[in-house]
Nucleic acid binder design. Structure first.
Lengths: 136, 136
DNA sequence: TCATTTATGTTATAGCATAACGTCACCACA
DNA sequence: TGTGGTGACGTTATGCTATAACATAAATGA
């Protein structure tokens, strides 16, 4: 759902515009979708959007969905969810649900420990139909 | 590691060429990487590669790595691994390790059940450094 | 002050993926 | 025998996603 929390005060203009576009969207947006929404605000080039997205993702204010090549605002109001986040993406309505699971993270850690693999980041994306769309 | 198992007999020429290219590669290949390797065998257009990849992925003989926009041969010799597969991608050497974890799958199922979400497929990709590359 | 860093704007280009068309080989079965 | 369906193939063109390279300007901090 589109939510209306205030943007962090220290965002730059472009970062603020991009985050705001994501916050007001019902679902994920591609960088080019965002650009189209923000042409009226003076943005002209993909790079302006990508640069803003980089910063937002870095700060955890937005997430990249690898399987869609698209971005969503972080669902957590105050945005400090740590560790592995999983996304459930509905193919019906396009909405994305975000959740964390300590057990999954732990299993992953076990596997990595056993293999000597140093985990830097993990993407976990579930595709399917959400409850509302299954009923149809 | 490049391995040398025989290809399934019922692959078409293009599918065989593409799978063979993946089998002989140390790491993931993009569709265009594959195309370049196979120009000598008569392939000319990206679509020829993408069509073959679609079939291979559908049959579980190859996997798509969403976070790389690239593809790998399935690591399982006889290729019938069912359910969720996780990939650990080394940023150092580029190699990909493939594993399955029943517990993770179960946790996912629990979450989905509680939400009424019908899971169709899941991608799980871990980025980091493999044991061999951490030491460096 | 002056050097460093960070954000910005712009053009051009690289890399990934599919649309839309036509052809051909194969196979089931009337 | 032939006829229709299916699935692979080949080709051209195009669209979507992402970054390189270069220039400018503003903020930071020793």
């Amino acid at each position: 759902m589109a939510h209306s929390h205030d943007l962090p005060a220290d965002l730059t203009r472009n970062q603020g515009l991009v985050l705001s576009a994501l916050n007001h969207s019902e679902g994920p947006l591609s960088a080019y979708d965002i650009l189209d929404k923000l042409r009226g605000d003076g943005l002209r080039a993909p790079l302006q959007v990508y640069r803003a997205l980089d910063k937002l993702v870095e700060r955890g204010l937005a997430h990249r969905l690898e399987s869609l090549n698209a971005f969503v605002a972080c669902a957590d109001e105050h945005c400090h969810r740590k560790g592995l986040i999983a996304f459930a993406i509905c193919e019906g309505c396009g909405k994305v649900d975000e959740f964390a699971d300590g057990v999954i993270e732990e299993r992953l850690g076990d596997w990595a420990g056993a293999k000597g693999f140093r985990v830097e980041r993990t993407t976990m994306e579930i595709r399917g139909k959400c409850g509302a769309c299954v009923g149809v």
